[in-house]
């Protein structure tokens, strides 16, 4: 069986500085992986390179998504094929209502896959249903994308998109940052509702706390641009006890 995501010996530079020094990981359908590591270890860089953000130079290695060379694809092609990145810092887009944005995005993805556009009533019904489950009032969707949203609302808006787009790979970058426990629980419930045998999640986090709510099958520890240890969910608890210091030494 082809893995959903295969990252092989990935080396990435930003402005002549190597950030990822040969990173390897494999994610299969249905699995939940957690990537933990101290600030600056390259977690966001990895997520950006998978999503196709410009400004990163891949100097070695490869990324395969469902067996295809992901690095050859434009960011929008990746999205249409099922890659979704929930941003650590979702941007604000004044003047574009969330509703218009959601519809434009869903239809762009469907068009790229050769599917027909959503009919407006069907789309509205779907949005209403998902928004309700995430405690997102419909009023919020009439505002500019993320404009005036609290940290929690921005993150829920990311989960809302995930639920609408139904991607096969979800990368959640620091979904817990800036959230209080209630907001975290709502967002995590939204994510858990999307767990399925043909969908994988990569949960990036600095803290173990999030993993109490989204329980991973595999945990990877990143330090200084490499995966320095992989294990089961108990590895997260271990880290909580001992901290990252030992791994920083290991990577050095």
């Amino acid at each position: 069986m082809t893995a959903l995501l295969e990252v092989k010996d990935l080396q990435v530079r930003v402005e002549d500085r190597e950030i990822l020094h040969g990173l390897t990981m494999t994610v299969n359908g249905g699995e939940v992986h957690a990537i933990m590591g101290p600030n600056g270890s390259g977690k966001s860089t990895l997520s950006h390179v998978i999503a196709g953000k410009p400004g990163y130079e891949v100097t070695g290695g490869e990324i395969l998504f469902k067996g295809e060379d992901l690095l050859e694809m434009e960011p929008d092609e990746r999205a249409a094929k099922g890659v979704f990145l929930a941003f650590q810092y979702p941007v604000e887009i004044p003047g574009v209502t969330t509703m218009n944005f959601l519809r434009t995005a869903v239809n762009a993805q469907r068009k790229a896959r050769g599917e027909s556009e959503y009919l407006v009533p069907d789309f509205l019904r779907k949005v209403r249903e998902v928004a309700a489950s995430l405690n997102i009032p419909m009023d919020m969707l009439k505002r500019g994308v993320n404009v005036g949203f609290s940290g929690g609302e921005k993150k829920r808006n990311e989960v809302l998109q995930m639920a609408l787009f139904q991607p096969s790979l979800c990368i959640l970058d620091e979904m817990d940052s800036g959230l209080d426990i209630d907001a975290l629980r709502v967002a995590a419930d939204g994510v858990n509702a999307l767990r399925s045998p043909d969908r994988a999640m990569v949960v990036i986090t600095h803290y173990q706390r999030l993993l109490n709510y989204i329980v991973p099958d595999h945990v990877h520890v990143m330090s200084k641009g490499r995966v320095v240890k992989s294990g089961g969910k108990e590895l997260a608890l271990e880290l909580e006890e001992s901290g990252y210091a030992q791994y920083e030494d290991a990577a050095a």
Binding site: D76, A79, G95
Partner: peptide, 30 residues
């Protein structure tokens, strides 16, 4: 056009010109 906004839209499936178009519409929308 703001590169971070463009990337956000492209990561959501909008091809480059469509992402630009949406941001241009927002710019003149007011």
């Amino acid at each position: 056009l703001d590169d971070s906004l463009l990337f956000y839209l492209r990561a959501r499936g909008l091809p480059e010109k469509a992402a630009q178009a949406l941001l241009i519409q927002a710019f003149v929308g007011e």
